[in-house]
Design a protein around this nucleic acid. Structure first.
Length: 483
RNA sequence: UCCCCAGUAGCUCAGUCGGCAGAGCAAGUGGCUGUUAACCACUGGGUCCGCGGUUCAAGUCCGUGCUGGGGAGCCA
């Protein structure tokens, strides 16, 4: 409510800018304006000009404030006192508009705002890099600080936000507890690849060939950024029942692919009294919930991706939400691949891990839907996975989906202390740093399971975006940490 | 880290056999117009990724480095 509305004046005063404080608070976001069911005498909209077109007596502006994909059309009459400034407004400039929300006589929009006041908040000079035209993803990556102002990236990051909320909603509804596991860890033995060292020591004081002495470092021992919250989550699953972690994860692998970044977000549920079967049920339920949520809540943004990014997106999402996911043993999958008659670049062989091309064949060509690949040979899987009765395989599961490949990797955990110790011995892992982990198997050990799901890979799956760098605001990759 | 491809105006890209550097969009100026990536005309805009080489002459050929992309490995 503005002072002039209280007083019953029909139009805002010329010195409107004196009431800027009111306007800041009372602006209506464009998604709400466009959803209006009736005209409104006085509204305030603020945002960035996407494009401007001039007519004889008017200037038409497309205003976007990030609240939704659509712009609202602003009609500025040439009689406005600052019309010369308005008619020179450039793409990217920020404005505040006060006016009437009225039905639009033009094509392409239901509502428009007839401006009574257009306040220029921030000009974008002519070197503003974003144009009305389409830009390449590669170029937009070099201006990651501005790319969220485009249709595609605005939509992608609204969906990202919505999906993060959906994760929490899902787990809250199911009675899981949200757990914050450490970002800095003391062990270099989590077994998931290269780690980033954390130190307060000056590397200049050490020569390259000698190992850094960490005893005088901040923690008095070697410290790294986390590659997984799993071991911590297991401890809490064995206390609170069902827990999940959802946070940043770091891998110092020198991976240069469209599916890897050095810093990413991972969701890791961990469930007590849960076996491999329950683990798969949970993963399937989770992914279906998230996909349905995206289709229900992000309809408009998702349409952009279905229309311009991936024509096959809608059928894929329907399949993800509706189809029963396949479940197949590693050994059976190898047989199936060998008998498929398909020519692979790499040979399929029992006992070794499947190649990307094999996984893609299974998910995209053979089953044409998600599948859980389970019970891998123990020799190619980490120590904490539960050894099956055959003594040769472990209760591991990877969920493979079309286009992405592995989106979930998990297992039932080895809960038997003696088997776990034996396994670590075989893999030459020193038990001592794991004393607390072993304790959980010593005191009231129970069967439990969990997995990790890459949040960015989920977003790629849902949007059809093919490069992981385009679903995270400021990607970190080898040799690249700008922004 | 390995294999392949690319780098030309602010952006997207063309550039033939080695022979004067081009288009659309953007920007500037003018015109027209309740416009819809508005339209029409004109104008300005270049380290052809860097370095070295071959040649009378290199955006174009050769070597090398850098950056980006695709694929592989590692994985989420």
């Amino acid at each position: 409510m503005f002072p002039y509305q209280i007083n019953g004046f029909g139009t805002p005063p010329i010195n409107y800018h004196l009431w800027r404080g009111y306007a800041m608070q009372d602006r209506i976001k464009i998604d709400k304006l466009l959803a209006s069911e009736k005209p409104i005498d006085c509204v305030v909209a603020k945002g960035w000009v996407r494009t401007r077109r001039d007519s004889k007596d008017f200037s038409f502006m497309e205003l976007n404030d990030g609240s939704c994909l659509k712009n609202i059309q602003i009609v500025a009459d040439s009689k406005l006192e600052n019309y010369s400034e308005i008619s020179s407004l450039t793409t990217g400039s920020a404005i505040s508009v006060t006016g009437k929300l009225v039905p639009s006589p033009g094509k392409g929009q239901k509502w428009e705002i007839h401006a009574d006041v257009v306040e220029i908040v921030g000009i974008a000079p002519e070197d503003y890099p974003l144009q009305k035209k389409r830009h390449s993803d590669e170029f937009l990556r070099t201006i990651a600080h501005l790319r969220a102002r485009t249709n595609k990236y605005g939509a992608a990051f609204r969906i990202r936000s919505e999906m993060a909320w959906a994760v929490h909603n899902f787990y809250r509804e199911k009675g899981f507890r949200y757990l914050h596991t450490p970002i800095i860890t003391g062990s270099d033995c989590e077994g998931a690849g290269e780690m980033f060292k954390v130190t307060t020591l000056d590397p200049a004081n050490f020569n390259k060939n000698e190992k850094m002495d960490c005893s005088s470092d901040f923690f008095g021992q070697e410290a790294n950024l986390t590659v997984s919250g799993q071991l911590s989550a297991e401890m809490f699953a064995l206390a609170l029942g069902d827990v999940y972690t959802f946070g940043p994860t770091f891998r110092a692998e020198n991976s240069n692919t469209s599916r890897h970044v050095a810093e990413f977000w991972m969701l890791e549920p961990e469930m007590a009294f849960c076996d491999l079967e329950g683990n798969m049920d949970h993963g399937e339920e989770l992914l279906k919930y998230l996909v349905r949520h995206a289709m229900d809540v992000c309809t408009e943004d998702l349409d952009l991706f279905a229309n311009f990014v991936d024509k096959g997106l809608k059928p894929l999402l329907n399949s993800l939400a509706e189809d029963k996911y396949e479940r197949i043993n590693y050994n059976d999958a190898v047989d199936l691949l060998q008998k498929s008659g398909k020519k692979f670049e790499y040979k399929v062989e029992k006992g070794i891990d499947l190649q990307s091309e094999h996984e893609r064949f299974l998910a995209e060509e053979y089953f044409k839907k998600p599948l859980f690949l389970i019970n891998y040979p123990k020799t190619i899987k980490p120590f904490y996975m539960r050894v099956n009765d055959d003594g040769e395989t472990v209760a591991a599961m990877d969920l493979l989906v079309p286009r992405i490949g592995e989106i979930i990797g998990g297992s039932q955990r080895e809960e038997r202390l003696n088997v776990l110790e034996e396994r670590m011995g075989q893999m030459n892992l020193a038990g001592e740093p794991y004393w607390w982990y072993m304790d959980s198997r010593k005191f009231g050990s129970v069967p439990h399971s969990g997995f990790g799901m890459g949040f960015e890979r989920l977003l790629m799956l849902i949007t059809g975006i093919t490069n992981i760098r385009d679903v995270i605001p400021f990607p970190r990759t080898p040799g690249s940490i700008e922004f």
